[in-house]
């Protein structure tokens, strides 16, 4: 039987980015299958956030091609940028919620400012997004009045209200405890299935990402050094992958060595 190649929501080819002559991304190649949860893992300072910001057209890459749904994104081409932004949402590490707007106003903002629809429809869709994320009791609350987890859900409600095809998540679990990390990944997986968008996550939380993702890649020193399924990642003998994956075991070994030398 002939195998059909998976359709990619996003393809990255030879992406390069340097700051003040110091390379941050070097020839990054990646394909994110349509309708999947794809996680880019990597240690802090590996260039994950820069990679995501290049994809979101926030930072201009020095070289390389980014293809969204088969069409090339060109930095500086306003029509192409607007089309991409209409179909893609970005979830910031800091949530980037408007602190002077209520939860409902935050969710309604992208619809009010980008869609030609009636106010009643905007209100209905915003309330529906908040209801789907179990935030209907907090419509009049300001972001500062919500807990960290609720703020994350509110940011996701704002991201999905425009019914995007692709959602980019920048370190969605940064600074959260293990239970909250699980809850965030569960939320992403649940709503990705419910709404059918393609999710691209960058994180350094290995165990949660391996459980929640369909595919993972490892970005190290600006290069993709592994790409595959979570099972392939777990079984990989690649030195960088095993160092990153088995960091707890390495710590255990180091501590054991310190205790022995103390005796």
């Amino acid at each position: 039987m002939e195998k059909t190649s998976p359709k990619f929501a996003l393809q990255v080819k030879g992406l390069n980015k340097a700051f003040n002559g110091k390379p941050v991304l070097t020839g990054v190649e990646l394909g994110v299958p349509l309708g999947s949860i794809f996680t880019v893992l990597g240690p802090s300072g590996a260039g994950k956030s820069v990679f995501l910001k290049c994809l979101a057209n926030i930072i201009q890459p020095d070289a390389g091609r980014i293809l969204f749904d088969g069409s090339e994104l060109t930095f500086g081409d306003r029509a192409s940028q607007l089309e991409f932004r209409r179909r893609c949402s970005f979830l910031f590490q800091s949530n980037a919620l408007f602190d002077s707007l209520t939860a409902l106003e935050n969710v309604a903002l992208p619809l009010e400012q980008t869609a030609d629809i009636a106010n009643e429809e905007i209100q209905r869709r915003s309330l529906e997004a908040l209801r789907q994320l179990e935030m209907e009791d907090y419509v009049g609350h300001y972001p500062a009045q919500l807990s960290g987890g609720m703020q994350k859900r509110l940011a996701l409600a704002r991201a999905i209200v425009t019914q995007p095809e692709l959602v980019l998540f920048d370190e969605p679990t940064a600074g959260l405890d293990p239970l909250r990390r699980n809850a965030v990944f569960e939320m992403i997986a649940k709503y990705q299935r419910q709404f059918g968008f393609t999710a691209l996550i960058v994180t350094h939380d290995v165990p949660e990402a391996l459980v929640a993702s369909d595919r993972v890649a490892l970005l190290n020193q600006g290069r993709i050094c592994f790409e595959g399924t979570p099972a392939e990642f777990s079984a990989s003998n690649h030195s960088v992958v095993s160092d990153f994956r088995d960091s707890a075991a390495a710590l255990q070994r180091s501590l054991a060595a310190i205790r022995i030398s103390d005796r």
């Binding site: 979101a56 057209n57 926030i58 940028q81 607007l82 932004r85 209409r86 949402s89 970005f90 910031f92 800091s94 980037a96 919620l97 408007f98 602190d99 002077s100 903002l109 992208p110 400012q113 980008t114 425009t162």
Partner: peptide, 25 residues
């Protein structure tokens, strides 16, 4: 001060990623 804080907390970049013209808004 308000715009400076909005820049600091990525609210202005968030507007751009939503396709909202930040100057216009």
């Amino acid at each position: 001060a308000e715009l400076g804080i909005q820049r600091n907390t990525e609210q202005i970049v968030a507007l751009e990623t939503m396709g909202v013209n930040s100057h216009g808004y």
